[in-house]
Each structure stands twice: as structure tokens, then as C-alpha cells.
Design a protein around this nucleic acid. Structure first.
Lengths: 277, 277
DNA sequence: TTTCTGGTTTGCGTGTCATGGAATCCTGCC
DNA sequence: GGCAGGATTCCATGACACGCAAACCAGAAA
């Protein structure tokens, strides 16, 4: 036999299967996306359980479609321009995102702070849009950046509201790194993490000061969807001391109001704590 | 004949084609992403020039892979959860600087000119990488240098594409210095600045000849990110008269092509003007 | 209700093209 | 030069994607 059926006789399900080549191809594409960078043919083949020659032809096809790209020098494969467009289309079809994108410029305008939107992606909290402001100390943040759970306000919110199973891996890695740097009583413990979670849940708004970068402070607020699911997080960032980073200061109130309004529009129960007591 | 070949006999390119089913499937996926929302089978089929039955089996396959999803009620197709992950992965892999660094050596190699990459830093356009070539009159440029807005092609591009609030301070200082040196009708006025901006925006490519240094000429092209934001500028520099510095000369074309390609890879719509009219 | 109409889904026979395996060709590396 | 380790191509084979047409399934009109 030359062709191994991916699913033996399509048992049970009566629905006739679609073009199976495309299904395997899709899985292959997803595998490539799951790797952490450009990968060699053999790596991809092994990772997806295919023979190199089979994977090779799939990869070629995906390149033809522009979904993958092949580095001319090394011959390694990576996501292509069309995949990016695809993803941007997918992201902008999420209703919460569309709505949040609309209010972001005004938020930056009114607070004078940089603001950004992040969503939970496969590698953690991912920045999908940021509005830079004229800060005296510019932040180095761009779309696509993965935010740490412990060191950013947005990360704290995801930590508190995403299911533990989702955050566990990333969290473990970050705790490990944290404890390499911080010794003694500053070590991060399970209790410390629980403390972060509960305080974030109680306040509704999260804050970090001088963690990822020493000179900036973050304020972040969650936007919930209709099932009470955390859809995205809005963050404002400013220079420490150059703005009022209090939980009840004007920027925090403004931010909380925007997030709450979005949650309400989306049918979220706006279960956040008393940001404006 | 039952199967219509998508590409007749693979003319010219000797490279053996990859799995062609996957290539057509990819195009179909891209078509769905290009539509403005969930679409019916027939719509998609028509849009991509396929028979419904063929499209149907592709769509089924794409659903199996999770790249598409089918609304249970209406049966319409839309982008699926995996496409979102794909997009987030693609976004997080974007690194304008790293990508630009990769193409810089080739640019220098092919044009024989020095080339450099600059980004908008806290003090203005900042050189982050410079490839020196064997120019008869070497340029004195190193990483970290701040480029003037008025006297360099790269600066002109930042002037035209950065928000005014960002450039205002630096610009005011430069105009002041300029008008100390240049008197009479060579003075820099608001009209002169507007003129620079509009011409740069229209051409897409900027040029300065003998401004910062008398004997060199600069050509610069912008690289835009997916939000239409200017991410970085690529400049080539040569000795005046020793190379073709025309807007439609080979170096300018080459430069514009490289910048355009980068913009596309970054999800930018490559909306730059007619660099090669 | 029946009929119609526009769309989706599924059989069916055909023959194209994806497949596994091995051969071949690179390209660093010792 | 010889030697991996990997990328690419060749080849015979039969599994499966193809076009076509029929069946099916709404909702709207009659």
C-alpha cells in the first residue's frame, strides 16, 4: 500500500469526510506555527509524524500558497506573509477586539499614556495593538510581543482569569527565572502567586510598577465576554512618577471605565471589583 | 478529463511542484479570510472560481483541521480557532529589525553602496545597523548615530510619517540651526517642510544629495508595519556622481523593492507611492 | 398543504496525483 | 578527500480528488 489512511474507515460519524489532503496539510501548518521559529524539513516531519518526502511536498505546496516561506540561505521553513494576513483577519473578526481597537486611540489621547491591547495566545498574553504616546522614556513594545505573567499588569490579569491549565507551563518557567534572580524572602512562592491572583480579582484592575522595565508603571483592566470569559486586556503604560498610578487616580478610573463599558457591550457581567469606589 | 490542472505544464520553473492540493486549499483559505465575514459555500466557490462540490470538500477538510469553522445553524463558513492561533504565532514572530538585518548585506552587495537601517528612537532617527561598502569616500556613520530630519533621506521619511507631535521638538531645533546657516531665500519655512513631506509621501522614496556630507547622496525607503505605522527606514548611501541616484535608477528600484517586500512580510499594505513610475 | 427555488450535500466512475521507499544531490565538517 | 546529515528528486502504484449529476433540504411563494 502506498497511501496510509489518516483515519481508518471514518467510523461512527456518518458525515462524509472532506478533502483529507487539505486536513493533513492544515495540521502541518499548525505544527509549524507551534514551533518557536524557522524549522528544518526533518524537524517538521518528525514533529508531525510524517516521512520527510511527504512533508516536503506539503511544505512546498504551502510555500506556493504563501502560507509558509522558505529562508533562501538555510532552506528552513517559517510562517509566510499570507499566514500573517490570515491571522490579522481572524483577530479583527473577534468582536471584542474590534470594539477595543476603536477606543484605544482615545484612551491614549485622554490619559497621555501609551496603551495596548493583549489577548491570550498560544504562547501567552500577546500584544495585538499598541498606541505609543509621547512618553519621556519610550517603551519598547510592539505588536506580537509576549507579555510575562508575573512582571506585567496585563499578565497578572491573565494569570488570575485564565484557567490554570492554560497558564501553568508559562508560569512555571517564569517562576523559575524569577527565583534565579530573586533570592531569600523575595522568592516567588505558591502563596505569592495566590496573593497576586486574589488581589487582582478583588480590585478588578492590576498594576505593576517598575518590573519589566524599571522606569515604567503599568495599569491594566480586563474585558470580559458574554460567558464571563476574559477576552482581552487593556493596559496603559507611563513613566513612574510622571503620572498618577494610584488605583483610584484619573488614569486608572478612565481605564476601568473603558474596560467596564466594553465588557457590558459584549454581554460580560462586568464582575470586576470596585475600581471607582 | 476529470481534473483540471491549475497550472498547465509548470512552464519555465524546473523546480518540481509541491503538493498542489494543499496549494489550492491554501488559496481557498485566503479567499475566506479576505471576505468580510462568514460566507456561504456558493459564495466562496464563486469567489475562488471552483465548482461548489470541489470547494465543499476543501471546506470540510479545513474544518477538520480547525482552520475554518461552520456555523451550526446557517451552515456558513468562517475562520476557525486554529487560524487565530496561527495568526498570533505569526504576529509574535514579526520582528521588523531582525528581518531587515537579514536583507541588508544583500542590498549592499547588489548595489555596491553602503546601506543602513534606522528606527525612530527617543532622540530621533537612530541608526541601528550599518553595512559599509567599498566607497571611494567612506561614510562616517556608526550604530547609535542620530540622523537629522532635514538633512538625510531617512530623516525626511520619519518627518513625513511619524506623528507631528513626535517630530516637533527635534524639527524646531534643526530648523533653528538651518536658518543660522542659510539666509535669504534658502531659509527653511513651514512651507518648505510641508513640501518635503508631501513629496516624500508621494514618491514613497526619499533622496538627499550632498546635505549632511557634501560628497554623498542618500536614497531611503520606508518599511511599514501592519497598522500602517512606519517601523524602520532603509537607506543606501553612495558617492555623488559615482552611482545612479535617480528615483528610477537601479539602486532606487532595488531599494524600493526590498522595502516593499519587507512591508508585505510585516503585514503592511505596501501602500507606498510609485517608486518606479 | 404543495410547489418552487436556491442552496448544500453526496454517489459514482475516472484517471490524476500524492505516496513510500530508495536513489541522488548537496553542504558543512572532520 | 571522505563522511555524515539532511534536502530533494525519481518512480511505480493505487488511493483519492475530480466533475457531473442526482438527491436532499431549507424557506418562500402559491
Amino acid at each position: 500500500m502506498t497511501r496510509k489512511p489518516e483515519k481508518p474507515p471514518r467510523k461512527g460519524r456518518s458525515r462524509s469526510p472532506g478533502n483529507s489532503t487539505i486536513a493533513t496539510g492544515g495540521r502541518l501548518l499548525i505544527v509549524v506555527a507551534g514551533l518557536d521559529g524557522p524549522a528544518t524539513l526533518t524537524r517538521i516531519a518528525a514533529e508531525s509524524g510524517m516521512l520527510p518526502s511527504r512533508a516536503y511536498r506539503y511544505l512546498r505546496g504551502l510555500c506556493d500558497a504563501g502560507l509558509l516561506a522558505q529562508e533562501t540561505s538555510s532552506g528552513r521553513y517559517d510562517l509566510g506573509p499570507e499566514t500573517l494576513n490570515l491571522g490579522l483577519a481572524a483577530i479583527s473578526r473577534i468582536d471584542p477586539v474590534r470594539q477595543a481597537l476603536r477606543v484605544l486611540p482615545a484612551l491614549t489621547e485622554e490619559t497621555g499614556l501609551a496603551s495596548l491591547i493583549s489577548v491570550w495566545g498560544s504562547h501567552g498574553p500577546t500584544v495585538i495593538r499598541c498606541e505609543h504616546a509621547n512618553l519621556t522614556a519610550p517603551i519598547r513594545i510592539r505588536e506580537g510581543l509576549i507579555l510575562p505573567l508575573l512582571q506585567t499588569a496585563a499578565g497578572n490579569l491573565f494569570l488570575a482569569h485564565e484557567p490554570e491549565a492554560a497558564t501553568a507551563e508559562l508560569l512555571a518557567r517564569e517562576v523559575g527565572e524569577w527565583n534565579v534572580v530573586h533570592k531569600g524572602k523575595n522568592r516567588m512562592t505558591a502563596a505569592g502567586i495566590a496573593q497576586i491572583k486574589s488581589s487582582v480579582r478583588k480590585r478588578g484592575v492590576a498594576r505593576t510598577i517598575g518590573m519589566r522595565t524599571t522606569i515604567h508603571a503599568n495599569l491594566a483592566a480586563p474585558v470580559f465576554g458574554h460567558a464571563g470569559k476574559l477576552e482581552l486586556v487593556i493596559t496603559v503604560i507611563g513613566v513612574r512618577g510622571a503620572f498618577n498610578a494610584a488605583f483610584n487616580g484619573p488614569p486608572a478610573r478612565k481605564l476601568a471605565a473603558v474596560a467596564k463599558r466594553l465588557s457590558r457591550d459584549l454581554g460580560g457581567d462586568a464582575k470586576d471589583g470596585p475600581a471607582t469606589p
